[in-house]
Computed example of a mutant assay.
Amino acid sequence: MIERYHLPALMASTAVHVAACVDSELARAQMTARRVGAALACSSHRDLPGNVDAAIVAVPNEDHADVAAELLRAGVHVLVEKPMAVDVVECDRMMAAASSTGTVLAVGHDFRHFPIATFARHLFAAGALGPVRAVDVRQTAGTRWPACSPRALMPAAGGGVLLSFGIHLLDLMSWWFGDLHPVRYSDDAAGGVEADCSCDCVLSNGAPVHLELSRRRTLRDTFVVRCERGTIELGLYEPAIVHLTLPSGGCRLAGFVPDAAFTRAPMQTVFRRQLSDFIDAIHEQRKPLVGATEGRRAVELVQACYRLRRSLRQPWDFPEAYGVPATASRSHAG
């Protein structure tokens, strides 16, 4: 994450200078510091206060709160990768640290910086299609983000595909539609972390929302939002699409959101915009696009889903795993 997206964004910015690189392996921090011209390379974030004004925290999920809170208490502004933390208690600790020093705490929900996400925000806020009647989201969450360690696959990470990827989608839908209320959730965690999950929520107006995520299967990778005056299908990236169908079903428009910079370099553009928003929030003493309140809300939604957890039934599972007698299952199948 740092190597592929955050560092290129930092190096392209005229508003910041990379002053320090931190890695638990000092040799790796030193190598990166030489490459980007940073004066300081260290193995602990505790060496940063006094040497930097702001920091990007991209450590394992379970370390977000400790690292970010210490930096915030020391007066260092923080952009922390999503999820903000593994639970709302840790989020609250981070928020208290930022409040105590007046520092900016931004959360890396970079999906909000995708052109189609911004377009959707304005579209739904304007009410152009009328009230939302139903939402269906199917998203592959495969190998686009290669891991450097197995820690993201361990229970200490706080969760699997819902926490690491689905949290982006929950944040987007909260941004677009307002409050979400989870009512059903199932996954294949089985004591570990989930690779597949299914979640049902309702919006404040009672409209149903269905979300399906998978690390193992290829899904549609779009949002389908049925509204009173039409249905719109949105793909943020791969595919980046906008399809509008009128209620009669006889007229369908297909297009995209023009954005030259995003077309040339999609992910690099998204991370540059996220960094610019963070830096501007510091200079202008304002909230970033995704601040602590929004980051906490997304974590709270994930926790609410996990509290509803039931086993996701797989075709190869024995019926007894779900409390269904084998004879009853065979009778039903017949």
Rank of each mutant, 00 (worst) to 15 (best):
V67I: 06
V36A: 05
A333L: 14
A207T: 01
P208I: 08
Q268P: 12
F278C: 08
V290H: 09
L301G: 01
V16D: 02
E70P: 03
C227L: 00
R252C: 05
L162F: 15
L162V: 11
S214T: 08
L253H: 08
D179S: 13
G127A: 08
D200H: 14
Q314T: 08
V242A: 04
A39S: 09
L180C: 10
R313A: 15
A152Q: 10
H109P: 02
L172G: 04
R151F: 09
R220C: 02
L312M: 15
H45D: 02
A333K: 12
I2P: 02
T118E: 15
G334Y: 14
H109I: 08
L162T: 02
E90P: 03
T269C: 10
S149T: 15
T222Q: 13
A147R: 15
G160N: 02
S204E: 12
P208T: 10
M154Q: 10
V290E: 01
R133E: 09
A152W: 07
R296E: 07
A74F: 00
A304T: 10
S149N: 11
S149V: 09
P146T: 11
D196K: 12
I241W: 04
S13T: 03
H45A: 08
D221Q: 04
C305E: 10
L246I: 08
S331E: 12
V80R: 06
V86Q: 04
R93S: 07
R220A: 13
T327M: 08
A265Y: 11
Q314W: 14
Q285Y: 13
F165A: 14
M154E: 15
E90R: 13
S24N: 07
V104G: 07
R296N: 05
F165I: 04
H45F: 06
G160M: 06
S100H: 13
